[in-house]
Amino acid sequence: MIYPAIDLMDGGCVRLLKGDFNKRTDYTVPPLDVAKSYAAAGAEWMHVVDLDGAKDGKTAQTDLILDVAAESGLKVQTGGGLRELAQIQRLLQGGVERAVIGSLAVTNPQMVKFWISEVGQERVCVALDVNIGEDGDPYPATRGWTEAGERTLWHVLDDYMGTGLKTILVTDIGRDGVEGGSNIDLYKQIMTNYPTLDLITSGGVGTLDHVAELKALNPHGVIIGKALYEERFTLEDAIAC
């Protein structure tokens, strides 16, 4: 399943290089128009990130995201700045299919486990954005990738086993926006170690060969962002390859 992605700041579509807010590219096409074009191309889902929320720790694009969910014809999963159950419930009740929880999944796992039990495992995705350490292990970062984590991805995932967590999204920050290929070895290891989890991959896709390489792993989903904005290939081709 291909998940085309849009990142939102100040009401528009942007992309960051390696999660750096100082390396931002703005795109002029309105977010809803982008979403509708993806629906017309055959997408079923869309991944939407509130980057203002991820950076500042409070949701900022909720109304726009709800408009996209209501009018695009796509199922939407979204995250960025979600810190309270009420925020998640507003999104889900407003038409969003799945809430994506990032930083709090690392810093306050007990709260996130409670949210999963409250809204249901199908409605929550835990997003773990990792830097690869000098020891070769992946370490989840927090607060819009601005703070490095001390626990490995494996420690974080082990803590969620048996809690009802179903869907995870893992991004290698060092590959995000670079379009040089995804961290295939990392995704293989996740799928081998945690076969009960639905893995959505993110970061690094720049060619159809990259898409095909990821599809060969048979993950639950593949997120593609910048490559579609920059017209490296079409969404139709990515879905078909």
Rank of each mutant, 00 (worst) to 15 (best):
K166M: 12
M1F: 05
G95V: 07
L157K: 00
L92N: 03
V178Y: 00
T171Q: 08
I224R: 02
A35L: 10
L169I: 10
K215M: 06
P140S: 10
G204A: 10
H210E: 09
L104T: 04
Y187D: 01
D63R: 12
Q77P: 10
G206M: 07
A227L: 07
L92Y: 07
I65F: 07
E231C: 07
T146I: 06
T234S: 15
I6R: 05
V211E: 01
T146V: 11
Q89Y: 00
L91N: 04
T25S: 13
G144S: 07
G19E: 06
D67Y: 01
T152N: 07
R123L: 03
R90Y: 03
G102K: 03
D185F: 07
D50I: 06
L128H: 06
A39K: 15
E122I: 02
I101L: 13
V205I: 15
V49I: 15
V34Q: 12
I6N: 00
V100N: 00
T163N: 10
D63W: 02
N183G: 08
V119N: 06
D237C: 04
G102I: 02
R143K: 15
A41Q: 14
G80A: 07
K113G: 02
D7R: 09
Q89I: 07
I200M: 14
A60G: 04
L228M: 09
H47P: 03
V48Y: 04
T142I: 12
Q121H: 13
D159N: 12
